[in-house]
Structure formats: structure tokens, C-alpha cells
């Protein structure tokens, strides 16, 4: 299949320290890419650049063969960025949070779709509960439920396993594999060794590509 995301000669520095130079990555539909490297090696910076939140880079990023900067609207409808932050308002219920997240992308969802997403992350009965009453792990799961109610073909996941129990980690790995199976692309950062029964491209930001 054709390359969807192509990064060529990407260079970025932070506080006069080079994070990465001449970084080139190709990602095709169905592929999973794991960014590895020690703390401060620029994993989050790279994800933020790819999400379009950071413009501090030099080099080219192409999306479906065209420069990314010319097709932000299309890209933002297909890309889902999952950041460090909790991504939810504690005063609101899980359903309200998810509905807002979908609205931000211009996507109308039904209650049924939201409850289905909550069911998948194991929070079926917690939809109408204010999020501050949920545990840290459960709040994380509310945020993860975005993966199932938002329509996207490219996931950018920054440390998705934080605050998730062991069984949950296996679940998320399964979701990622399933998503890739259906033609989705995933780029994620994690220190955790992935146990996914699909080929995972590993990019080490501390050193070259292995």
C-alpha cells in the first residue's frame, strides 16, 4: 500500500540541544511504529510535531503524498492525538466529556456510540458519573474511550499505558493490533515492551533506526 505519512530529514532542537537530526520515517496503513529512547530524547516532541502542536522543526512531512501544511483540515479529521494530559474535565460525566471530544472534531455521535465505547474500555456503568468520582486508572480509560468513538485512521499515542493495570495493558495492545488490522496506523511512545502479534517498527531516538 502507498505510504500515508512520510517524514524526511526532520530536525528539531530544544534549548540549543539537538533532539533528532535527519530523521526519516515512512508509515503505511496497517503499520505500527514504536518510538523508543531515554527520557528527553524527543519522543513527545516528535509526536507533538506530528500532531501539529509544535512548529519547531525543519524538514518535510508529507501526508498522502502532499505536504502536510497544505492539508491540515483533512489530516486533523483523520489523526487522533492522545497526550500526557488527562484529556477530561473532572466536573463533567464520562458521556459529556466524550461528546465534547467528538464535537471538537466536528463529529456527531449518538449516546449509543458513546456507551459502546465506554463498554469497550470497561466503564459501561460509569457513563453518568462525574469524572472526579472515578479513580485515576478509570479516568485514563475514559480518555482511552476516545479511541473508539472518534473516527480516525492514524493514532498518535503518547505513553498510553500510564496508570493502567497489567490486564489493561494487554487490552490496549489488543486494540492497537485490531486497529492496525483494519488498516489504521499507530505511532506510540512507551517504555513498555510491546507484545503485539504484528510487526512493530521500532525507531530509537537515542540512536538510529533499528
Amino acid at each position: 500500500m502507498a505510504t500515508a505519512l512520510e517524514i524526511r530529514h526532520l530536525y528539531s532542537e530544544r534549548d540549543e540541544r539537538v533532539l533528532f537530526a535527519d530523521l526519516s520515517i515512512n508509515l503505511r496503513p496497517g503499520e505500527i511504529l514504536q518510538l523508543a529512547g531515554p527520557n528527553g530524547s524527543g519522543k513527545t516532541s516528535l509526536l507533538r510535531i506530528l500532531a501539529g502542536l509544535s512548529s519547531r522543526y525543519e524538514g518535510d512531512i508529507d501526508w498522502c503524498g502532499q505536504p502536510l501544511r497544505h492539508q491540515w483540515v483533512d489530516y486533523r479529521q483523520r489523526m487522533l492525538y492522545f497526550s500526557h494530559g488527562s484529556g477530561i474535565k473532572p466536573q463533567l460525566t464520562a458521556v459529556e466529556n466524550l461528546r465534547w471530544s467528538c464535537a471538537m472534531r466536528g463529529q456527531a455521535v449518538t449516546d449509543g456510540e458513546i456507551y459502546a465505547a465506554l463498554d469497550r474500555v470497561g466503564l459501561g456503568g460509569f457513563g453518568q458519573q462525574a469524572c472526579y468520582t472515578l479513580s485515576a486508572g478509570q479516568q485514563r480509560r475514559v480518555n482511552l474511550a476516545r479511541l473508539f468513538c472518534i473516527d480516525a485512521c492514524f493514532w498518535l499515542l503518547d505513553e498510553p499505558f500510564t496508570a493502567i493495570d497489567l490486564a489493561g495493558v494487554a487490552e490496549i495492545e489488543h486494540w492497537i493490533a485490531e486497529f492496525a488490522e483494519g488498516g489504521g496506523m499507530v505511532m506510540l511512545t512507551t517504555h513498555h515492551p510491546l507484545a503485539i502479534d504484528r510487526p512493530v517498527i521500532r525507531v530509537d531516538l537515542g540512536g538510529g533506526i533499528s
Binding site: 492525538y81 494530559g85 465534547w100
Partner: peptide, 22 residues
Amino acid sequence: RSDYDDGTLEQMLLSPMPMYPL
């Protein structure tokens, strides 16, 4: 501030919608 802290501000900025009405 609270949107910035919990990361929902990023979700807003990543919206494909025009920023002005948001």
C-alpha cells in the same frame, strides 16, 4: 488554564474546525 492543564485545550486546537468560532 484548566483546559491547558488537563490537555483538553490541545483537543480544541487540533480541531479541523476554524478556530474563530471555537
